[in-house]
């Protein structure tokens, strides 16, 4: 005889629980944390490289870098002045999850930092589904990706707390209709705070880092 057992449980419940644990671990050490997500090559590591020198003498920063393979990005972060840089290799997974971040947190003496920057795996779909427990989610869109991305990847645009529009130095060379892009963003994430900038020329970087420092201070 077959019986039906009602469950109604969110499929990623276990990950969500671990994310909550990560958050309280960060909170009790007084660390503010952000999760940077974007497609491959949008400029996640470049943004971190530009951000670190601007936070020097203001915040003690640790970086956790997620990639399918290599430690290239963590090495770049260390070189740019991160007090600690840890690479997580996901071995094929298209996203970081809460278990992986927990593993990285265990390698850090969290009391030594004010800010933790997590660079997620380059992917515009999967990272949105896996909460890590960080305080804020940041999405980087970059000009050469095209202005239709909010429409094609709504899941990613919906869940984030701030949007960086990178590579604005390339605006003269690619056709990118900013108003079309912004209309899509506005539907998915009304009023989301936006930072147009170039991680190459440095234009717009100060607004972004001022905001970041403000977020960390507010948290204290």
């Amino acid at each position: 005889m077959t019986i039906r057992v009602p469950i109604v449980e969110n499929i990623l419940n276990a990950n969500d629980h671990l994310a909550v644990e990560n958050r309280s671990r960060l909170e009790s050490a007084g660390v503010y944390s952000i999760n940077i997500m974007a497609s491959p090559g949008a400029g996640k590591t470049s943004l971190i490289e530009q951000t670190l020198p601007r936070l020097k003498d203001k915040l003690r920063v640790a970086v956790v870098d997620g990639d399918i393979a290599t430690s290239i990005d963590a090495d770049r972060a260390a070189k740019a002045g991160a007090q600690a840089a840890i690479q997580i290799n996901t071995g094929g997974d298209c996203h970081l999850d809460a278990v992986m971040l927990r593993g990285a947190l265990e390698q850090l003496d969290l009391t030594q930092f004010d800010l933790l920057i997590v660079e997620n795996v380059g992917n515009l779909v999967c990272p949105a589904s896996f909460k890590l427990g960080t305080h804020k989610s940041i999405l980087i869109a970059s000009i050469p990706e095209g202005d239709d991305k909010p429409y094609k990847y709504p899941g990613m645009y919906r869940g984030v707390d701030a949007l960086v529009i990178n590579k604005i130095d390339l605006l003269p060379y690619v056709s990118f209709k900013m108003d079309y892009f912004e209309r899509g963003v506005e539907v998915l994430n009304p009023g989301v705070v936006t930072f147009p900038l170039s991680a190459k020329t440095g234009e717009g970087m100060d607004a972004w880092t001022d905001w970041l420092v403000e977020q960390v201070k507010c948290k204290r």
């Binding site: 005889m1 077959t2 019986i3 039906r4 057992v5 009602p6 469950i7 109604v8 449980e9 969110n10 499929i11 990623l12 589904s129 709504p154 919906r158 998915l188």
Partner: peptide, 16 residues
Amino acid sequence: QITKGDEFRVDSIDVE
């Protein structure tokens, strides 16, 4: 506003 389409759950299982 998005009002449907976010669902992602195990609703029930059939067991013997």
